[in-house]
Amino acid sequence: MKITILSGRSGSGKTTALQALEDHGYYCVDNLPLGLLPTLVTQLEAEEHPLNRVAVGIDARNLPRQLLAFTTTLDELRASQVDTEIIFLEAEPASLLKRFSATRRRHPLSGDNRTLADAIEYEAQLLADIRMRADLVIDTSSLDVHSLRNMIRQRVARRDVSLSLLIQSFGYKNGLPYDSDLVFDVRALPNPHWHNDLRPFTGRDEKVAEFLRGHPESGALLDDIFNYLTRWLPVYAANDRSYVTVAIGCTGGRHRSVYITEQLAQRLRDDGIPLHVRHRELDG
Rank of each mutant, 00 (worst) to 15 (best):
R131L: 11
V137T: 13
F201S: 05
D224N: 06
H107G: 12
S95V: 15
G171T: 08
I130R: 08
G219S: 07
S164K: 08
A134D: 13
L97S: 14
L97V: 14
P200E: 10
Y236R: 08
L189S: 02
T140H: 02
L165M: 13
A237D: 09
D129Y: 00
R158H: 13
D118E: 15
D112R: 15
H146T: 10
W194R: 08
R105F: 07
S141K: 01
L97P: 07
R159P: 05
L222S: 00
Y122E: 09
L222F: 00
L97Q: 15
P93Q: 09
L198K: 04
I167E: 09
T103C: 07
I130E: 11
S218D: 01
I130M: 15
S141P: 01
P190Q: 05
D197Y: 07
A237N: 06
M132K: 14
L189G: 01
Y178V: 01
F170M: 08
F201G: 02
V186P: 03
A94R: 13
R114L: 11
N239E: 15
Y228Q: 10
H107F: 12
P216M: 04
N113T: 11
R155F: 12
V235N: 03
T230V: 15
A94P: 00
N150R: 14
W232D: 06
S162V: 03
D129P: 07
A188Q: 05
S162L: 10
P216V: 02
D144V: 01
R104S: 01
L148G: 07
E123C: 04
A94Y: 05
L148F: 11
G171W: 04
F184T: 02
D205R: 04
P200I: 12
S180E: 09
R149T: 10
D179C: 10
H146P: 00
R133W: 02
H146Q: 12
R106K: 14
E123H: 05
Y172C: 03
I130V: 15
T230N: 03
E217V: 08
A157W: 07
L165T: 12
T202S: 15
L189T: 02
Y228A: 12
P234S: 06
R213A: 08
K98S: 11
G111E: 09
S162Y: 01
N196C: 10
S110R: 07
H146V: 06
D205K: 03
R133F: 01
V161P: 00
R187Q: 11
R133T: 01
P190R: 07
D185M: 01
Q125H: 10
L221H: 00
L229Q: 06
V186Y: 04
T140L: 02
A188W: 01
K98E: 14
N150T: 14
R158L: 15
H195P: 01
A102G: 02
L221D: 00
L198E: 03
Q168G: 10
D118S: 13
L116G: 12
A188F: 05
R159C: 13
K173S: 02
L198M: 04
L222H: 04
D240W: 09
R131G: 14
